[in-house]
């Protein structure tokens, strides 16, 4: 049985390559059939609200995020508190993600074998 992997993405999408690097881990791990969960935390939640990457001549991270289920990464979560702090509405998140409160996030950490936070 492969080890389960929790990926935590906590950086905003438009500056720096960190969100892309974490997504690459998710896509590569998915292609290898690893059990992967992805949690959007802190400013990482902005990744779910389709920024206009073309304005900055950047690759479209949002389109790539939609591919996660194709790569077998279907456990997608977002921190409810971080959405609330930023005035964001979970029903408008793309791709669709499951909202978790802080206790549920603690449980998520506990239930996976490995955690990578970027």
């Amino acid at each position: 049985m492969s080890k389960s992997l929790l990926l935590v993405s906590r950086h905003a999408p438009c500056s720096g390559s960190t969100p892309r690097e974490l997504l690459d881990i998710a896509l590569a791990g998915g292609a290898f059939d690893l059990p992967i969960s992805l949690l959007f935390l802190d400013d990482g939640v902005f990744q779910l609200f389709t920024p206009n990457f073309a304005a900055l001549e950047q690759k479209n991270l949002s389109a790539n995020l939609q591919a996660l289920p194709m790569f077998g990464v279907e456990q997608l979560y977002v921190a409810e508190r971080c959405l609330r702090d930023r005035g964001l509405d979970s029903t408008k998140a793309q791709p669709a993600v499951q909202c978790l409160d802080d206790a549920a996030i603690s449980a998520l950490y506990a239930s996976h074998d490995l955690v990578i936070t970027l």
């Binding site: 896509l27 389109a63 591919a67 077998g72």
Partner: peptide, 18 residues
């Protein structure tokens, strides 16, 4: 169609699934 939708070229597994 995959590339237009997701802006990336698929690896084997996602290609099969798609």
């Amino acid at each position: 169609q995959f590339y237009a939708e997701f802006q990336l070229a698929p690896a084997m597994r996602p290609l099969v699934k798609y």
